[in-house]
Write a protein that binds this DNA or RNA. Structure first.
Length: 722
RNA sequence: GGGCGAAUAGCUCAGUUGGUAGAGCGUCUGCCUUACACGCAGAAGGUCACAGGUUCGAGCCCUGUUUCGCCCACCA
């Protein structure tokens, strides 16, 4: 840390120095003024965007490469208005192609000029003060004017004097203070700085060696480019609020006393006439210590520090990579000699409907407490999780919260169904089972039906998929995966199938045990995304044992539960049920009306369908289900092929021949199109020779299935007559 | 000036080893079916920005273009 006089970013409104990171650049249409500085040695015309600063010029510079102007180097010209003689120097900071090739040099008000002034021993003349007004040095006509008023007045005077050669439009970026929007004034002043290069070096290495990793990875490059182009950090602020700089100056000697406790005497000469620095530290200068300073540091043996440092993940927004993330890494490596965290996960930024970042000053941010009152904490949390792909900004729209609210409601309702059927001890709450056994489902060894094996298999897949998503930082996909499983697999299919046993005769213990188990595991999977509702429901489950979900291990997915056979059965049931529902909807069959259904199928598929009869009957509104290879398919029935089986629904008087022909024709066109696509692929020798065998095999199977379906459709159409 | 991201169904967006385009909302058709109308069932809707290239095969890989957005930057 050092103190010195340098050009800093100065905010004339807040009247403080700020760091480079607090300057927001904004492209603007501006003007480039070409101004003649009279000289007896030749034409000198400078080009500038800030004419008001010329009042503080102490030189003119040209490029050392600029042969046409070389003869002027070492000569002088006259500064208009003021009348000061200005030396003409050659400096590598000047580009000969830009503007006129002459640069006016104002060491007190421009960082580049400051460098030129240093190298050529030019004087510094301060013409703008800390409030952005012109000083006495700017001359009596300008002193006290605002810097922008002065600009206009300078040009006015120069035009009057015939010294403005031309004015051209010029697009360039101006720096603004990120807090108040005031145009930054580069100002020469005495400030404290941190020398950054030595701190950046290990921080660069930490990212290179992947001691710290970034998600999504591209942010690593952002971090790296900042780190490798780092500049010293101005940490003193002329503000009221903050950590006051712990340095005392002595009126009697030059010594600086630096102390953690307030001293009464100068450390150098022992004198009592000391006064503390008036300035405070940049707020980030304390924030960069955050990963260790709250844990007991600088006591390196503090238990919390030993236990919790370094931590695993920092979750934050990309907008503060420089302000905070990068600096925490540097501070930790410097003071703790280890990384502060191993992974940096950058979330997207939540923006308003117009894409603007939510901010207090814009007033475009809804009050989270209002949102939570209206929609619920979990709904808010879940919706944002599911709608936020890694590192991508989210356009927030309150209506989107319906997604989370509805899902929360779905969980609640499904739980009502289940908890209405089983008591706290796991005993069935209604309808005696066949043998009158009321023993708990908990200690019971269940005898799984195939649909139980299916949902357990699906649960296992969901858990392992979800884990993988989370491990790969794809939280949105993890959320979507659980959402889909719970709503569509568990609620739409399993619970509906479960009602066959739940509301029917017979032993209910197996189905209750499975429902409770799958609900409980789903709650665990959902818990990080919907902590409140899941704990609430879980506490009522017979399996809770008074423990919080928070205390349980996260489900990993039990590979032993995977059951391809049961999944195959489910596919058949789904296909049959869907095709029946399809026909019912197409012919507006009264939803309350149970209809006869026949399924044409050969063994072993026929048995599969027979064994799923109860489910098909309940889910598709079926009166009677006939299954076999030769079930009748007469005129006046609707027939839908599903691979090698066919769902036939006799609907005498309901099926309109023309409508059915249209339906089947449309279906045939679809199958035809798909079939020719597959045929084209398989006819391609390159495909058969070079594609992976399993891909080719899949296409062949697909062709076979489509051909079967097509022949059935043709048969059905023939049955309808022409 | 440099870098990064985006462009997919009417809307908001998913889609990581290149192999039959998905969700939510909205729309249309039926349903208040004893967990849920914040719901159930069914349906329609897409030359995946444009132009080339690689490949048997491209939303996905490569090159270029256009349009948006963000970050960085001392050409005055």
């Amino acid at each position: 840390i050092y103190r010195g006089d340098y050009i800093v970013n100065w905010c004339p409104v807040d009247q403080t120095a700020i760091s480079d990171e607090e300057v927001q650049h904004e492209e603007r249409e501006s003007k480039l003024y070409w101004i003649r500085y009279p000289s007896p040695h030749g034409e000198v015309v400078v080009a500038t965007t800030r004419p008001e600063t010329m009042l503080g010029d102490t030189g003119v510079a040209v490029s050392p490469e600029d042969a046409a102007k070389r003869h002027l180097v070492g000569k002088t010209c006259t500064l208009p208005i003021i009348g000061r003689e200005l030396p003409i120097v050659a400096d590598a900071a000047v580009q000969k192609e830009f503007g006129s090739g002459f640069v006016k040099v104002t060491p007190a008000h421009d960082p580049v000029d400051y460098g030129i002034g240093k190298r050529h021993n030019l004087a510094t003349v301060v013409v703008i003060d800390r409030t952005g007004k012109m000083t006495a040095q700017a001359g009596a006509d300008f002193a006290g004017l605002d810097r922008f008023e002065a600009r206009a007045k300078v040009i006015e005077r120069l035009e009057h004097d015939g010294l403005v050669v031309k004015v051209e439009p010029h697009r360039h970026a101006v720096g603004k203070h990120d807090r108040c929007g005031t145009v930054i004034e580069p100002l020469l002043s005495t400030q404290w700085f941190v020398k950054m290069a030595p701190l950046a070096e290990p921080a660069v290495r930490a990212a290179e060696t992947e001691a710290i990793t970034f998600y999504p990875e591209r942010w690593r490059n952002v971090y790296m480019s900042w780190m490798t182009n780092i500049r010293d950090w101005c940490i003193s602020r002329q503000l009221w609020w903050g950590h006051r700089i712990p340095v005392w100056y002595c009126d009697d000697c030059d010594h600086l006393t630096v102390s953690r406790t307030d001293p009464t005497r100068c450390e150098g000469c022992g004198g009592a006439k000391i006064r503390q620095d008036e300035d405070v530290l940049d707020t980030w200068f304390s924030s960069w210590l955050w990963t260790f300073s709250p844990l007991g540091w600088p006591d390196e043996d503090a238990p919390d520090l030993k236990r919790y440092h370094p931590t695993s993940v920092l979750v934050t927004g990309s907008e503060i990579i420089f302000f905070w993330v990068a600096r925490m890494i540097m501070a930790s490596l410097e003071f703790m000699r280890e990384v502060p965290f191993r992974h940096v996960f950058l979330t997207g930024i939540v923006r308003d409907g117009q894409g603007r970042k939510m901010s207090k000053s814009l007033g475009n941010s809804p009050d989270p407490l209002d949102i939570i009152d209206k929609w619920g904490t979990d709904a808010f949390r879940f919706t944002l999780s599911m709608l936020s792909p890694p590192g991508k900004d989210v356009f927030f729209d309150e209506a989107k919260l319906e997604l989370g609210r509805n899902f929360g409601n779905k969980m609640w309702q499904a739980s009502r169904l289940i908890l209405g059927a089983v008591d706290k001890e796991g005993k069935p709450l209604f309808k005696e089972n066949a043998n009158g056994d009321f023993t708990s489902t908990l200690a019971f060894r269940p005898e799984y039906a195939w649909e139980d094996r299916w949902i357990l298999s699906a649960l296992s897949r969901c858990a392992s998929d979800t884990n993988r998503c989370f491990e790969e930082w794809r939280l949105n996909e993890g959320a979507a995966r659980v959402y889909d499983f719970f709503w569509h697999d568990f609620c739409d299919w399993y619970l509906e199938l479960a009602k066959v046993r739940l509301y029917g005769e017979g032993d209910k213990r197996t189905v209750l045990a499975v429902m409770v188990h799958v609900l409980g595991e789903s709650l665990k999977l959902m818990h990080p995304l919907m902590p409140y509702i899941t704990e609430e429901i879980a506490s009522a489950l017979p399996t809770s044992n008074g423990r919080l979900l928070l205390e349980h291990a996260y489900p990993q997915g039990d590979g032993r539960a995977l059951d391809a056979e049961a999944e195959g059965r489910m596919t058949v049931l789904r296909d049959v049920v869907t095709s029946v529902r399809n026909v019912r909807a197409a012919y507006r069959v009264n939803p309350g009306l149970k209809i006869p259904v026949r399924v044409r199928a050969h063994e072993p598929k026929a048995s599969l369908v027979r064994e799923a009869t109860d489910g098909i009957v309940r889910l598709a509104g079926v009166a009677t289900l006939e299954v076999g290879p030769d079930v009748a398919k007469e005129k006046g029935s609707a027939a839908t092929p599903i691979g090698d089986l066919e769902v036939v629904i006799p609907l005498a008087g309901v099926v309109d021949v023309e409508a059915e022909r249209a339906r089947l024709t449309r279906e045939r066109e679809k199958v035809d199109a798909e079939l020719s696509e597959v045929a084209r692929k398989l006819a391609n020798e390159g495909f058969v020779a070079k594609a992976k065998p399993e891909v080719v095999e899949r296409e062949r199977a697909r062709r076979e299935r489509l051909e079967t379906e097509l022949s059935k459709l043709v048969e059905s159409l023939g049955l309808l007559g022409h």
